[in-house]
């Protein structure tokens, strides 16, 4: 990996949340305990973990939505942990996000066009220029061009997620943090949204940090997969390697716990899962 410049490098990142109460009584909660990972240009790194593993917090720390306690986050050769608010605002040109819940990630009272032009206006485009770009963005995510004048509530979950993806793409970012972008979607919708993400990556060379709890989804979109457990990365490797021949016991149980839509194979998985659990 050393032969290529990493687009994003996280080194020994610690994140904690202050406890309730004041003074010494406030026990802090450590969410990330020394996480290191790297994403190369044009690459998708899948980040898998159970609930409470810290996977979402890692994404939020990279986006500057939660502060790092220690460690470094380097983006395109520049330290961005502890960046000033002003620097953060310009960073948004390169660093974007797609959230899990397409229902709450779009402001219900803004039209799709307003939502999409927001990041463009923030980067200093004129209103007319922004309007012009919106049509192109809608086309990129395969939404009808008359969507711009409509409100989020007129769209289904999958369509809303397309809007969220279009918003992330608006300024042409180099890295998009995808925080469980398909886990609120139906099976058939999930597939089309994942295919859209792949298509966009091929077209633009954008990198993804793809956060999910679903190994099947992660291996479908990721070049490499990192497994996070209790705030620590326990295993990293190529997608096929990690999802088919997991080394770490946690990854193995994650794999065995995920049910497959095949009666015989699932029975075998279930037995193996119970065996591992009895043994552990």
């Amino acid at each position: 990996m050393s032969d290529v410049e990493n687009l994003l490098a996280v080194e020994d990142l610690h994140v904690s949340f202050p406890g309730r109460g004041r003074g010494r009584r406030a026990a802090r909660t450590d969410v990330l305990n020394g996480v290191s990972l790297a994403v190369r240009p044009g690459e998708t790194l899948g980040l898998v973990g159970g609930s409470g593993s810290g996977k979402t917090t890692l994404g939020r720390a990279i986006l500057g939505l939660v502060p790092a306690r220690s460690g470094t986050i380097t983006f395109a050769g520049e330290r961005i942990d502890g960046a000033t608010p002003r620097r953060r605002r310009t960073l948004s040109r390169d660093l974007q996000v797609v959230f899990q819940d397409p229902y709450t990630s779009l402001n219900p009272s803004l039209t799709i066009g307003d939502t999409l032009s927001e990041p463009l206006l923030a980067q200093g485009l004129s209103r007319a220029e922004a309007r012009g770009r919106v049509a192109g963005l809608l086309e990129r995510v395969h939404l009808p061009s008359d969507s711009a004048a409509r409100l989020p509530r007129e769209f289904s979950g999958g369509q809303r997620q397309r809007v969220a993806i279009a918003r992330a793409l608006a300024i042409g970012p180099r890295l998009i943090v995808c925080d469980e972008p398909v886990s609120a979607l139906d099976l058939t919708t999930q597939q089309t949204v994942l295919e859209l993400l792949l298509e966009i990556q091929e077209g633009t060379g954008v990198s993804y940090l793809f956060v999910s709890h679903d190994l099947a989804v992660v291996r479908f979109v990721s070049h490499r997969v990192a497994v996070i457990h209790q705030g620590v990365i326990v295993e990293t490797g190529d997608a096929a390697e990690v999802t088919e021949r997991p080394q770490h016991v946690y990854t193995r149980s994650l794999l065995l716990a995920a049910p497959v839509a095949d009666v015989a194979e699932q029975r075998a998985r279930r037995e193996a899962f119970e065996r591992e659990r009895a043994a552990g």
């Binding site: 290529v4 190369r40 240009p41 044009g42 690459e43 998708t44 099976l187 058939t188 999930q190 597939q191 994942l194 990556q201 091929e202 077209g203 633009t204 060379g205 099947a216 989804v217 291996r219 479908f220 979109v221 990721s222 070049h223 490499r224 190529d238 997608a239 096929a240 999802t243 088919e244 497959v260 839509a261 095949d262």
Partner: peptide, 20 residues
């Protein structure tokens, strides 16, 4: 519905360098 299940979909290949 079954066609959209990703269990059997192949894992994405390894990264081959910058595409764009």
């Amino acid at each position: 519905l079954l066609g959209a299940v990703l269990d059997r979909a192949p894992a994405r290949g390894a990264w081959k360098g910058e595409t764009a």
